[in-house]
Amino acid sequence: MSKPHPDGAAAEDQTGRFVTQPNGRPRPLSPHMQIWRWHVTMAASILFRVTIGAASVGAVLVTAWLGAVAFGPGAHAAVTGFMGSPPGLLIGFGLTVVLFSFFLNGARHTINDTGNGLTPKTSNLLSWISVIGPVVLAAGFWAALMGAPA
């Protein structure tokens, strides 16, 4: 039941510049990063999507760790040893950044979903907290962990 529309080429477009709506008319694609002028609210928004993607990978890694524990002390010790090495610590730090990003950016998203915090001043502040906060909290987490008695 699609109607003819002015730009027939858009319907065949696979370059990603246009999509065809259910009424048969073309519309430009959803916002892509290169279309928007940089702003911190945009950065917080796309970083939340990145965070969810990274959290999905994190869930796989945590499940692998659960598996190592389930396979016994030998496998668990191997994973613990790797996590103490430089690449392991880098992964560990990244996972805590993702975790705190999920918390802070998720809180921002939830506040905005209730219709609050949408004035330019507040949305900028919440976005800056969501972008910078995770790194600060992760640094604090690791400082406390390294400083804690073994």
């Binding site: 524990v69 016994g72 002390p73 668990h76 010790a77 613990t80 996590m83 103490g84 560990g92 996972l95 805590t96 975790l99 705190f100 999920f102 918390f103 998720g106 809180a107 939830t110 987490f141 406390a144 962990l145 073994a150």
Partner: peptide, 21 residues
Amino acid sequence: LLPLSLWVASSAFTLAGADHA
């Protein structure tokens, strides 16, 4: 998930470097 993520952070703090037992 928001409160659960804080619980995960606290659990990670407890379990980091812990032995198997």
